[in-house]
Deep mutational scan, measured.
Amino acid sequence: MQYKLVINGKTLKGETTTKAVDAETAEKAFKQYANDNGVDGVWTYDDATKTFTVTE
């Protein structure tokens, strides 16, 4: 399945996608991506759209 990440950071904004077997695996990949880019915020997930959002 394909999952999307929407980033609403202080210095980084945008979107990225990943393919993963489940939401938990996608979340780990997205959190690593956010961490690598210095984004630390509040996470939400919408199962209907398979979209994670992180807001600083």
Rank of each mutant, 00 (worst) to 15 (best):
M1P: 11
M1H: 14
Q2W: 15
Q2T: 15
Q2L: 15
Q2F: 14
Q2V: 15
Q2M: 15
Y3R: 01
Y3G: 02
Y3H: 03
K4T: 15
K4W: 13
K4Y: 15
K4V: 13
L5C: 08
L5N: 01
L5D: 01
V6F: 06
V6A: 04
V6I: 13
I7S: 03
I7D: 01
I7R: 01
I7L: 08
N8V: 14
N8S: 07
N8L: 13
N8C: 12
N8Q: 11
N8E: 09
N8P: 03
G9C: 13
G9L: 15
G9Q: 05
G9F: 10
G9S: 11
G9I: 12
K10I: 14
K10S: 10
K10T: 12
K10F: 10
T11Y: 14
T11S: 12
T11N: 11
T11G: 08
L12K: 11
L12D: 05
K13M: 09
K13I: 10
K13S: 11
K13W: 10
K13F: 12
K13N: 09
G14N: 09
G14F: 13
G14P: 05
G14I: 15
E15A: 09
E15I: 14
E15T: 14
E15F: 13
T16Q: 09
T16P: 03
T16W: 15
T16I: 15
T16M: 15
T17V: 11
T17Y: 15
T17Q: 08
T18E: 05
T18F: 13
T18S: 05
T18N: 05
K19H: 14
K19A: 10
A20M: 04
A20E: 04
A20N: 03
A20Q: 05
V21T: 12
V21M: 13
D22L: 04
D22Y: 03
A23Q: 12
A23F: 14
A23P: 12
A23W: 14
E24Q: 13
E24P: 10
T25A: 14
T25E: 13
T25H: 11
T25Q: 13
T25F: 07
A26M: 01
A26L: 01
A26I: 02
A26P: 00
E27P: 00
E27H: 11
E27C: 13
E27L: 15
K28A: 11
K28Y: 07
K28D: 06
K28L: 11
A29R: 13
A29Y: 15
A29T: 14
A29E: 12
F30G: 00
F30W: 02
F30S: 00
F30C: 02
F30K: 00
K31F: 05
K31M: 09
K31V: 06
K31S: 04
K31Q: 07
Q32Y: 05
Q32M: 09
Q32I: 10
Q32G: 07
Q32S: 07
Q32C: 06
Y33A: 03
Y33Q: 03
Y33D: 02
Y33E: 03
A34Y: 03
A34E: 01
A34D: 00
N35E: 14
N35R: 15
N35D: 11
N35K: 15
N35C: 12
N37K: 13
N37V: 14
G38H: 08
G38E: 07
G38A: 05
V39Q: 03
V39S: 02
D40W: 12
D40H: 13
D40Q: 12
G41P: 01
G41M: 02
G41K: 01
G41E: 01
G41D: 01
V42A: 09
W43H: 00
W43R: 00
W43F: 04
W43T: 01
T44E: 10
T44Y: 08
T44A: 09
T44M: 08
T44Q: 09
T44V: 10
Y45M: 02
Y45C: 01
Y45D: 00
Y45H: 02
D46E: 07
D46V: 05
D46A: 04
D46G: 02
D46F: 04
D47G: 08
D47A: 13
D47Y: 07
A48F: 11
A48E: 12
A48L: 11
A48V: 11
A48M: 12
T49R: 06
T49G: 04
T49A: 07
K50C: 06
K50P: 00
K50A: 07
K50L: 11
K50Q: 09
T51V: 06
T51D: 01
T51S: 04
T51M: 04
F52G: 00
F52Q: 00
F52P: 00
T53C: 06
T53F: 10
T53Y: 12
T53Q: 05
V54Q: 00
V54H: 00
V54L: 09
V54T: 02
T55R: 05
T55W: 10
T55S: 08
T55N: 06
T55C: 06
E56A: 07
E56L: 10
E56V: 10
